[in-house]
Amino acid sequence: MSERIKEIVLISASPKVEKEEPLSAYLASLEERRFKSDEFHVSNVNVRQCVMKNQTEEAFRTMLATDAMIITFPLYFFCLPGLLMRFLQDYDQYRVRQGNVTKNARVFAVVNCGFPEPEINEDAVRVIKSFSRRIGAEFRFGVLIGGGGMILGAKDAPFMKKVMEQITDAFDLMREDVLGNGETPLGNRYVSVRFPRKLYFFMGNYGWMSMARQNGLQKKDLYLKPYRDRN
């Protein structure tokens, strides 16, 4: 029995513009690898690019017609970055202007954060769930990743093998869910880097110091208080 090809949109939403590749973009490329097959037609949306170039309309049209979307982004102050809110808020208005058309799309969230605890991404996943409700889509589950700051640098190291497998397993579960029109509720997946917390902090703090030094600053400069008139 041959089913029609499913449409899937991978929405990659890191606000970063610097040369450094955002973790969210890397995760979206992994998603693409898991979904690329005869059964899917995959579209990619780079939120930063399409918002900055005022080219959201094509993305919105694709989203309206899709069977599933995966929204991949970093945690900013325990919820969605301003950039992604702009995109989703505008999409919601576009959808309403188009006469509220919704296909019962499935929505998945992939959130990574800088702190080690993956659970702090839970509220951001709930925001995506609320968005899904609002647009008449069905939220399925989120992948919550802690320790995002070290994943790109360490992803090929042996101690990261398990973590990377957990991530790709979660993407495979999304794939099965879309293909099989799964109806049973699926819980969020939590991924934490197996790395001593103290060492993670030490490396992070060391990293800030060495970046500051490269910018010609000294340790005491990191503590400046420029916005306070008297302090």
């Binding site: 890191s14 970063k16 970093p74 950039l83 800030w208 970046m211 500051a212 400046l224």
Partner: peptide
Amino acid sequence: FCKGCFNCWVKKPGE
């Protein structure tokens, strides 16, 4: 939009 550059920490601290 904040672009996550962290220069407010390591280039021009506090700004």
